[in-house]
Amino acid sequence: MCALCGILGGDDHWSDAVPRAGVYTRRDGPQARRAEAARRAKVLNAVLASRGLKFRDWQGQYILQTLTGQTQVLSMISHVWAEGGRMTGRPMDPLDPAWLARIEDAVPDEGGAA
C-alpha cells in the first residue's frame, strides 16, 4: 500500500519516484507530493486540452475523461499517453507537428492569455 495516498500498489514512475538514497524526487513529504501532483495535473490538462481530454489525479489514481464523458481510471501515470491516444483515436506523439503547434499555442503570453 502506498503510505502517502492509501491506495494499494502505488505508482513509482521515474519522474515521481519513491524516496530512496541518491534518487531525485519531489515526494519528500505529503505536502510536496500533493504540490507536485497539482503541477502535473496543470501541465497535463494544458497539453491534453487540444485533444479534448481532461486529467485528474484522485488520491494516487489517474482519471482521464473525454468531452463526451468517456472515462478511464489509470493506476500509472505512464499510461496516460497510450490510453489518451486510444480514447481519442489519435496517437499522442509529441513529435507530431500539428499537435506540437497546438501545444505551443497553449502557452499563455506574458499577460496571462493563451
Partner: peptide, 14 residues
C-alpha cells in the same frame, strides 16, 4: 521538471 517528466515519457512511449 514536471513538464520534462511528462514529455520524456510521451516521447519514449511513441
Amino acid at each position: 521538471w514536471t513538464a520534462f517528466g511528462l514529455w520524456l515519457t510521451a516521447l519514449l512511449d511513441s
